[in-house]
Design a protein around this nucleic acid. Structure first.
Lengths: 298, 298
DNA sequence: CTGTTAGCATAAGTATAACTTAACCAATGA
DNA sequence: TCATTGGTTAAGTTATACTTATGCTAACAG
């Protein structure tokens, strides 16, 4: 890459004043230094930038073109640095957050909405997706932090630069409609009966179901019949209510229905599987005021 | 103005590679120098720009913003410098020329047209006007060179940084229609007869007439009756042919009419006043190839 | 599990080049 | 005319950017 940037800065100052002496005063260096710097730049570019006509430096066409390039840069830079400064003074700027689809589109947007009422100068860019794709983006600096639902089994792996803290835990239940329950399970929630049922899952290799069975029976059930796979809790919930089959949902979402008896959850005697939403941040990363303010809810 | 520009250059290189080592290789300096430079910049800005995570430097949001500012600048700069280089290699770029209205709109545009057929990469910005306004613009660097019709009397003044060279000389005649001539002058071109005639001039205080009379009679004629003042040779020419009065025009423009006898010129026995179009350039100003190519016609 | 490698940070010393001081010239204005 | 201002150039100094050297940690291969 060509030329010394600081010489361009000197040139820029000279150009604005049409005078080396004035530039020197602005830059708090001697007039001689300015003159030498300009000379070097001209020699470097092999292009005359100013015509010396005593008491004034008259820019050539080349100097004009060069100035046209530098001027907007300096303007943007000043603006940008001022903005960086402002960001440090209080919550403002943009927060780039990653989150699992469900958590992101349900809980997170509510939090964002509430937060923005207090801090309207903070903007959000939420990326929904699986930790598998979100975490690398966090590691690459594209995201400020991510919320991840780390199922048991997909623990830390070899991603040590992350600092993980638990944010929300919700019980996951395997549920179906009351009708389906009485027709297929008849109150007996034994593995054998379950294995023959219809299941609903959130795509990606029946991970939710897999984890539920592993948790409750310490083994996997390879041949489960998954009749619907859809990436949405709401959809699974509706499917359950419609009697399509058995699906995994957060318990609190079906609390009313469980009480009313319209939806039944499969209980094994063991404590329920819990889904842990964790906050993942880059180790060693300084948090902006906006980030701090947002995360202090957790 | 804030910060050291060269540190920004180092930052820019680091950002592109997400690595100080790689940046160091590109900049042909040691990895340590890069690291130190980045450290200083961060301290200077009081803002973390990269998260150090072992083999990689992952940029923070602030670094992203900063990069957004610098990146287009570097791109423009590279383009601009390449363009400057190209301009030196052959005639291209833009030529900013000043000229008197008549010369500019008549002779100059023809020259430009002819020149552009040979050098289509050269563009022109022609400013028409009086030397009074054009020369300061030349002195201010807004024009590359100007053509000026310097009447005797408005010599160098105190504008020493100019180098002036004669380019075109044309004889100026005081002319009128044959009808007007026979009616008002009757072949006798004595001052007394002339003084009572109607005159045409190019605005600005009857300068053309004033100079003509000074040249031919060594004195001014204060009370001349100027019946039309218009900033156009063509207009004056038409006015003359229409028998409106006497006006100053370049002799070669009325050559045919003089021969045919439809237009008469006032002759005093003295050589005709000549209008000198001069090329004025800034002393000490290096000429680009385009400039050289264009001016070598003269 | 350990040795090796790659990448970054830090410390200390060097050397480059930016800057200052000084002398000189030219133009301008009191 | 002389003092003032602005610019250039040369020489000397100083600052600071850079190098060399060292240590650390993480990743990876054997």
């Amino acid at each position: 890459m060509l030329t010394d940037f600081n010489r361009l800065k000197v040139f820029y100052t000279i150009f604005r004043h049409k005078s080396a002496a004035a530039a020197a005063r602005e830059l708090y260096i001697s007039q001689s230094a300015v003159s030498q710097s300009l000379g070097k730049l001209e020699r470097e570019l092999k292009t005359q930038l100013f015509v010396r006509l005593h008491k004034k430096l008259v820019p050539t066409a080349a100097a004009g073109s060069l100035y046209e390039i530098i001027e907007p840069f300096v303007r943007n830079l000043e603006g940008g640095l001022a903005w960086l400064e402002a960001e440090k003074s209080g919550p403002r700027g943009v927060l780039r957050i990653g989150a699992p689809v469900e958590f992101g589109s349900r809980n997170l947007v509510e939090l964002v909405a509430a937060f923005r009422r207090k801090h309207p100068a903070v903007f959000f860019e939420v990326s929904l997706g699986h930790p598998d794709v979100l975490l690398p983006r966090l590691a690459g600096g594209e995201l400020d932090f991510v919320f991840a639902d780390i199922f048991p089994g997909r623990g830390g792996k070899n991603l040590p630069p992350f600092i993980v803290s638990s944010v929300i835990t919700e019980k996951l239940v395997l549920a179906c409609s009351a009708g389906y329950y009485s027709a297929r399970l008849k109150g007996a929630a034994d593995p054998a009966a379950l294995a023959g049922c219809d299941f609903l899952d959130y795509s990606h290799g029946k991970l939710a179901l897999y984890n539920w069975f592993r948790h409750h029976y310490d083994r996997s059930f390879p041949g489960l019949k998954v009749v619907l796979t859809v990436e949405s809790v709401q959809a699974i919930l509706n499917a359950i209510k419609s009697g399509l089959g058995l699906g995994i949902v957060p318990e609190y979402l079906v609390e009313k229905e469980l009480k009313a008896g319209s939806v039944k959850a499969v209980r094994t005697g063991r404590p329920e599987l819990i889904n842990r939403i964790s906050l993942v941040r880059l180790k060693g990363r300084a948090a902006s005021p906006a980030e701090k303010a947002f995360l202090e809810n957790f």
